[in-house]
């Protein structure tokens, strides 16, 4: 599925300073029953956002008006657990285009890249600076520059670079997806398939 191009994103951020945020928190399994990719944002962090009687949990960050923006900032090992791409869909559908953490779970990171959400891995120190800055002043803006591969805390000008492989970077800058690439080399794949032993 093609997605929006990603170039430079300047936005306030939503801080979630919890480690090991797992995919069951991002989107609980009972909300995986849709057969189309619509509406998952409504249930993003469902059980942290809502009480069992569907009233809001006022102290959760997504329910605090002062925090908003297109960048979600999470603690170490963000997105651990299940392979459900629905977790990345929920993040995207809610309105986030970038997730920042000091460490990502493998499959979640890949899923984000495949649907146009940029995972930005920073050092533990820089992550703490972002948490401190956004919590002290929720209007603090971050700039994520994919082309230059850096993220900047605009209030102080502090910046850090991040890794992404050249292929994925090009995909995100242009809104390309992997299937287009694979379909272009279909002949090679067919030839390869004939030689496989299993």
């Amino acid at each position: 599925m093609a997605y929006d191009k990603f170039d430079i994103l300047t936005s306030t951020a939503v801080p979630l300073p919890i480690e090991n945020v797992d995919t069951d928190q991002i989107i609980p399994a009972r909300f995986l029953k849709a057969t189309e990719r619509v509406g998952f944002g409504d249930n993003l962090f469902r059980d942290w956002r809502y009480n069992q009687d569907n009233t809001l949990k006022e102290d959760f960050v997504l329910n605090q008006d002062k925090f908003s923006g297109k960048i979600l900032v999470g603690g170490k090992n963000f997105g651990s657990g299940s392979s459900r791409e629905h977790a990345a869909w929920a993040v995207y559908d809610y309105g986030f285009r970038c997730v920042v953490s000091s460490f990502f779970a493998d499959i979640f990171r890949g899923n984000c890249l495949n649907i146009g959400v940029l995972p930005v891995q920073v050092s533990a120190e820089f992550l703490q600076k972002i948490f401190d800055a956004t919590e002290a002043d929720p209007t603090t803006e971050l700039e994520v520059n994919l082309k230059e591969q850096n993220i900047t805390l605009l209030s102080t000008g502090e910046s850090e670079s991040f890794d992404i492989n050249g292929y994925k970077k090009n995909n995100m800058l242009n809104g390309f997806d992997d299937i287009d690439y694979l379909l272009n080399i279909k002949k090679d794949i067919e030839t390869f398939a004939e030689s496989t032993p299993l």
Partner: peptide, 22 residues
């Protein structure tokens, strides 16, 4: 290993996925 739905689509379409080697 487990894959996301975009990759399920890739495998259905081309019997391949694109992954960096761990």
């Amino acid at each position: 290993f487990g894959i996301g739905t975009s990759e399920v689509e890739m495998v259905l379409a081309t019997q391949c996925i694109m992954q960096p080697k761990p």
